[in-house]
Amino acid sequence: MSPSAEQDLGAIRGALVVPGLPMQLPEYAGQADAGGEIRERSVAALVEAIADWKPSAVVVVAGHDPLAEHTKGSVGARVARLLLAGAGWEGPVREISVPIDADPGELDGAAERVLEGRTATGALVLVPADLSAKRTEAAPGHFDERAAAFDAHVLDAIASGDAAALIRCDLVLAQELWATGQAPLQVLARVLPAPVRSEIMWSALPWGVQYVRARWWGRKA
């Protein structure tokens, strides 16, 4: 960590994008913990990010389905809590929930709430977010020929830290492709518009859903 970064008071230290699939939750595991490897690798990534960035707080940005009638809370937020517990995080946590069908105004509002949470020594933004769920015939949303290109665009934007490209993504198309992570990713793009570094750690579509684990390093003051 450079001295200048240490003095980057008030900045977001960085963001970690992780898969948000419910299969990671223990209550949904079978005898074989099918989501266990994804979860444990995300925990490891979170441990590493916390060690590198030494944040004073974590802000979770998770999407929620506004049509859901249950009271369990969003899967993304529950996954984030699980990862934070797994990583041994005991500091403050704020959860910002954004509708998965959010319009730009709602996305702006969510971004403002994230930034309100900045602390003197910087926060880590944790973003459970998945891309399209229509990549194969067996995918939850069946095959949609537009999905591959959509995912490629989002993955390129994440890999290159191109927040503007993320924001340019078609929100309606994202909805049609069941890309439930698009809204939280767009909030991330709003709060970290110029990451100094970006990296995709892993991406795959084992069940026809595009997952990604990625880091964005925070902007300088």
Binding site: L21, P22, M23, A29, G30, Q31, G35, A133, P140, W207
Partner: peptide, 11 residues
Amino acid sequence: RRPARTVRGLQ
């Protein structure tokens, strides 16, 4: 008994 493996609807 938990199912052997659960993926459907949980991806």
